[in-house]
Design a protein around this nucleic acid. Structure first.
Lengths: 132, 132
DNA sequence: GCTATAATTAAGACATAGTCTTATTAAGGA
DNA sequence: TCCTTAATAAGACTATGTCTTAATTATAGC
């Protein structure tokens, strides 16, 4: 369990809050702008621990590397097909989906993961491509 | 475009058909049992080309490495939380989900990816753990 | 403020997935 | 059989993520 308050942890958590659905690498870049001496392993570890403790949410997405979300309540995400940006999406009902799903007989379905693909507001407006 | 019929391509395609939702590494292992001289790059390339041409379907899943599916019709998948096995799942209706989803204003939702987590028949029966 | 101790870190090795380059091999038409 | 060129083997390379280890440092107790 994290007990000591360190310079590095503060920088990482600040970055997660400042950025929108950042990957570990995004956080690393932001942290390095303030302090290039912080190691890659520390950023990955601090993020993993924060996700483990429930302080942030780790988003495991199809086709993207893991992102971190400070919004803890359950919601779905859209991945921009053009720039890769992650946007929040509210889905009214996914339980119906799970109920109606027909799996292999003998198997058991526990959870349902819904993810959308599309264009983020910027890319939809035809604005210059901005990769995360 | 693939024009020549080679030993390596035959082995790879045979393996994809023999295995159930294999990853590229699964295919590599199977191919290596018959011919250890086939290179890793060849297996990845042949699979990528087969997916590109529509001969097989590349499954890009959350939390798993890409798998290859010989079933071309659209369906969802369940990832076994215990052993990682992929099972096919039929979902009656996902268009409703996309219609009802509320994204960021200005953005556009184009596609919907549904993935389930649960236990495959073997793991649900409490049979010995078998990792892919 | 000083010291001891144990949590935290930096550095880099390691694992895995996937792509790319290049020299070599071999498929298949002439 | 010979040629052309598609396809391959080998391995470099990128990226994400984890793990190990020795060094650093936060903080509790004095």
């Amino acid at each position: 369990m994290r007990t000591r308050k360190t310079h590095q942890t503060e920088l990482v958590m600040q970055a997660v809050h400042a950025l929108d659905h950042p990957t570990a690498s995004n956080v690393l870049d932001a942290v390095h702008e303030l302090d290039p001496s912080v190691s890659r392993a520390t950023v990955f570890r601090v993020l993993a621990e924060a996700a483990e403790s429930g302080e942030v949410q780790r988003l495991v997405l199809a086709g993207s590397s893991d992102c971190f979300d400070i919004t803890l309540c359950k919601h779905a995400h859209m991945v921009c097909s053009r720039c890769g940006a992650i946007s929040d999406v509210d889905v009214p009902d996914t339980s119906a989906l799970q109920r109606d799903a027909v799996g292999v007989k003998g198997g058991r379905i526990d959870a349902c993961h819904v993810q959308f693909f599309g264009l983020c507001p910027e890319c939809n407006r035809g604005e210059p491509h901005q990769n995360q």
